[in-house]
Design a protein around this nucleic acid. Structure first.
Length: 490
RNA sequence: GGCGUCGUGGCCGAGUGGCUAGGCUGGGCUCUGCAAAAGCUCCUACAGCGGUUCGAAUCCGCUCGUCGCCUCCA
């Protein structure tokens, strides 16, 4: 039987601002849409956090037995620069004197490469904005027909004030339109809009603009907010279960998506809105535009002023999983270093699982422990609490090894499977110590351990310590226990 | 200025109206040739001020501060 039938998953819904019991539209199936990156530069660590958060969601939903269709777009057109006049991709292409599609290709590859290193499972569908221009044009036509958009000089704008007469623009972000009217700054280049709150569904392209597509209104390109509505509707339907994204997209991006869907399809598109919180650096939001950011590769190589050393992708992933996805997390070398130590301790314990043998009776209540692991994840994907439970398991493993605790065959099997499931399948961590050469290394180290033990038997401490210390220097740590000497590779 | 968020021990970071989060760091003990590891153990908490309550870090109010959004942003 699928786990979702017995587990009661609760999700914090940004729309209702409360935790709700998760009930999909179609039993056993989940439709999930997450706003992907705009591929005009390398993804930074802050971008990555959001995608890792939803990777955890994806993994857990699948573990619970749901059939999940996970759609995450690539924004390769339509995302305007600060002044609201030019497409970000086109700007980058102009600056680097290359084709826009070269920009898209380069940074899409970077994006996929980084996420793969961090062991993210690829989405079921990864559509691009430029591949769905036709769908976007159709939506614009419908919204125009309903009188909720207007055409000016070949551009089409959504009429927010008109929409707000019958609907609530601000339902997600908790804003009142009156406030935003009073507080909106006047921006250059937006004078053709009726009201500053109106947003572009279609932008007419200037003569010099390279990225352009024909439409009934002008040769131009689609607005940023529209692509997500077009693609989510196309692949998940007019209403679907989960829509995710970074907290900073709540307004205006997600608010606009709701407005577009309601205007076009007369329905609220999303049942559960999930927002991942920001990753900060030096207490400030990581952001490309301010220069306050770090790239994942700089962490893997250690090549950044902020880094004292290199960290593995799994150590980084573990660091992120130690914080709840809705909390702000501050990044620093020291915080990562502390996480790495914990991560290695966990991995070492997982490696020791195979050395544990079954007993006649069990002194640990494995079922109750396992239950706590599920309760943590069922409570809005609480990975930090899950990890606390996994450290409980580390303690158990060490005590089992010492023989101070025992497990019968059935419990031991369950224990092993549960740990591995949570560590590898759900948290998505990887055991980086085991590689192709590990068996050879094991053989060599075993030989050195034998030589060292001979030296120790002869009380030749100088030699035994030399073997131990020099192995440690190259990252192999010996540990003398009651049952002989074991080692770990750091 | 508006809206929202958060404020936990040396650091990171969970959580709940009364019962140990966890990790890292530091101290002690056991084990050990020494060390490491492991086990046991100890220390430093819930921004401030009021209120509700038998009891609040947990609920309410105010103050201060943080961060985010309000403009492209994961």
């Amino acid at each position: 039987m699928e786990l979702y039938k017995t587990n009661q998953l609760k999700i914090y819904n940004s729309l209702s601002k409360s935790k709700e019991i998760f009930k999909p539209i179609l039993e056993g199936h989940v439709g999930m849409y997450v706003c992907g990156p705009t591929v005009y530069s390398n993804v930074h660590l802050g971008n990555v956090r959001t995608f890792m958060s939803f990777d955890l969601v994806f993994r857990y939903l699948k573990h619970l037995g749901y059939k999940v269709r996970y759609v995450r777009n690539i924004t390769d057109a339509g995302h305007l620069t600060d002044d609201g006049t030019e497409d970000k991709i086109a700007t980058k292409a102009r600056l680097e004197k290359i084709e826009p599609m070269e920009v898209v290709q380069r940074y899409s590859l970077d994006f996929h490469n980084i996420l793969q290193k961090l062991n993210n499972i690829p989405p079921s569908i990864e559509p691009t904005a430029t591949g769905h221009i036709i769908d976007q044009i159709e939506i614009i036509k419908t919204i125009l027909n309903k009188g909720l958009a207007y055409v000016v000089n070949g551009s089409v704008y959504f009429d927010v004030l008109k929409y707000n007469e019958t609907e609530h623009y601000g339902i997600l972000s908790g804003r009142k339109i009156e406030d935003s009217i009073q507080n909106t700054r006047d921006l250059d280049g937006q004078s053709e809009k009726k009201n500053p709150q109106d947003f572009a569904l279609w932008k007419k392209a200037e003569e010099s603009h390279i990225m352009r597509w024909p439409s009934p209104w002008s040769d131009g390109f689609p607005g940023w907010h529209l692509e997500c509505t077009a693609m989510s509707t196309k692949y998940l339907g007019k209403t679907f279960d989960i829509h995710g994204g970074g907290m900073d997209l709540k307004f205006p991006h997600h608010e606009c998506e709701i407005a577009q869907s309601k205007a076009c399809n007369n329905v609220n598109p999303v049942h559960y809105w999930m927002h991942a919180n920001m990753l900060t650096l030096n207490g400030q939001k990581m952001s490309k535009s301010t220069g306050n950011y770090i790239l994942p590769n700089e962490i893997f190589t250690g090549e950044n002023k902020l880094m004292k050393k290199a960290f593995s992708p799994s150590a980084l992933r573990f660091f992120m999983m130690q914080a709840h996805y809705r909390s702000i997390l501050d990044f620093s070398n020291d915080a990562l270093e502390a996480s790495e130590k914990g991560f290695l301790k966990l991995m070492e314990a997982v490696n020791q699982l195979e050395n544990i043998t079954a007993n006649k009776t069990s002194s640990i209540d494995i079922n109750s422990w396992k239950q706590k692991c599920y309760e943590a994840m069922d409570d809005d994907f609480n990975s930090p609490v899950l990890i606390a439970q996994l450290f409980e398991a580390v303690k158990y493993i060490n005590l089992l090894k010492l023989g101070d605790d025992t497990l019968n065959e059935e419990d031991l099997k369950d224990f092993k499977i549960t740990i591995k499931t949570f560590v590898f399948d759900i948290l998505g961590l990887q055991n980086e110590t085991s590689d192709d050469n590990s068996s050879k290394i094991s053989g060599v180290v075993a030989l050195l351990i034998t030589m060292r033990n001979e030296a120790r038997a002869n009380k030749n401490w100088a030699l035994s310590d030399k073997i131990r210390d020099e192995l440690l220097a190259i990252g192999i740590q010996l540990k003398d226990g009651k049952d002989g000497t074991t080692f770990i590779i750091n």
